[in-house]
Design a protein around this nucleic acid. Structure first.
Length: 319
RNA sequence: CGCGGGGUGGAGCAGUCUGGCAGCUCGGCUGGCUCAUAACCAGCAGGUCGCGGGUUCAAAUCCCGCCCCCGCAA
């Protein structure tokens, strides 16, 4: 039986940025990554350029074999069996894996999930923690089972969430902590020093996949609800609202906002007004301060610059 | 050939339809007011109107070609 993590034949599975960071760490730790499995390259951007995923690039740079698939079929299973892996490590792969695949490696299949399971099972745990204004979240390392994010837990670590922390910042924090936690957990797991703990199903909660529409602002929310939405979706899709500029309706993305503790009872939600050189928008219980925006068809700009060109913005209203 | 918006002094915009003196807000500079100021007053500088060609007495504006930026879609 292998007792050193460096002897393990590992298959790494994952697709987005967070997966790429963990993969880079595993490579730097001199682990034996036999193969990297990631989702197919997708057309990206206005010109529909097909850009390889971050994980694929990382693997190719290190001369690691890449297998791309968007479904687990017989071909995929056969490929895995042929590789005879000792361990699968999966970070945000995006596809549910069947038992038949999970059971192939000697030491099973390990998943990093950025929440304190059984809380926030599903595809958007980081965003959901921010959106709900959690002051604490965490990382769970677990064995995968047939059901999404429901497998027994090998290790967990709590992380404090700053009041103003946004998605990128929290993700970075989580990645840093995940690295050592993952390596330690792997070492302990293969030397049988950990007993997996079954999750308490009665405490399970779920989060949904994020869609563009989740960035749409309902001005009838409280200032802090909107601010949490801003933090949660700061990487994508960003928060936005629609504004009638004379004839056409324009989407405006809010790149940087702040909350104010002042209240403005005479203002209705969505109303735009100016106080002390600050541009504010009324919410259900107060207002948020606009700093930087991207109007549809325009480049990112400071709010004051936008107001210079469109003074009628002040006094108008968001939908 | 995916759909749409845009490129005008340093920044943000109007002007283009209907061709005829380069305009607005902000910033910069100079002077004034003020105990003082990011406030106020007076003045000044700063532009190949994205690039190339065409039409015209005359083009930011009309016609043709190209480049770049952004939103949607995927």
């Amino acid at each position: 039986m292998k007792r050193n993590v460096k002897d393990l034949k590992i298959i790494f599975m994952g697709t987005p940025h967070i997966a790429m960071e963990i993969l880079a760490f595993l490579i730097d730790s001199n682990l034996n990554i036999t193969c990297v499995v990631t989702q197919p390259d997708r057309p990206f951007g206005r010109k529909k350029e097909t850009i390889p995923s971050l994980v694929k690039n990382m693997a190719l740079q290190n001369e690691i074999e890449v297998f791309q698939t968007e479904k687990i079929d017989h071909e995929t299973i056969a490929f895995f069996k042929e590789k005879k892996p000792d361990l699968i490590i999966l970070v945000a792969f995006g596809i549910l894996l069947p038992n038949e695949l999970l059971e192939i490696p000697t030491f099973g299949s390990i998943n990093i999930h950025p929440s304190l399971l059984p809380k926030f099972r599903g595809p958007s745990p980081i965003q959901t923690a921010l959106l709900k204004g959690e002051s604490q979240t965490g990382i769970s390392i677990m064995l995968m089972s047939k059901k999404m994010d429901a497998g027994p837990i090998l290790a967990q670590k709590k992380i404090e969430v700053g009041k103003n922390e946004n998605y990128q910042e929290l993700e970075k924090h989580i990645i840093e902590i995940s690295k050592d936690l993952l390596l330690d957990t792997m070492k302990q797991w293969i030397t049988k020093k950990i007993t997996p703990k079954t999750q308490d199903e009665s405490k399970a909660s779920f989060c949904e996949i994020i869609s563009k529409r989740d960035g749409f602002i309902d001005w009838k929310q409280t200032s802090y609800q909107i601010f949490n939405q801003y933090r949660a979706f700061s990487k994508w899709p960003k928060i936005y609202s629609f504004w009638n500029d004379k004839k056409s309706k324009k989407k405006i993305i809010f790149n940087q906002i702040q909350v104010t503790s002042q209240t403005f009872p005479e203002k209705k939600p969505g109303e735009i007004f100016q106080i002390d050189n600050k541009v504010l928008i009324a919410t259900n219980n107060g207002a948020i301060i606009l700093k930087i925006i991207t109007p549809e068809g325009k480049n990112e700009m400071k709010i004051q610059e936008f107001v210079n060109g469109k003074p009628h913005f002040i006094g108008s209203k968001f939908e």
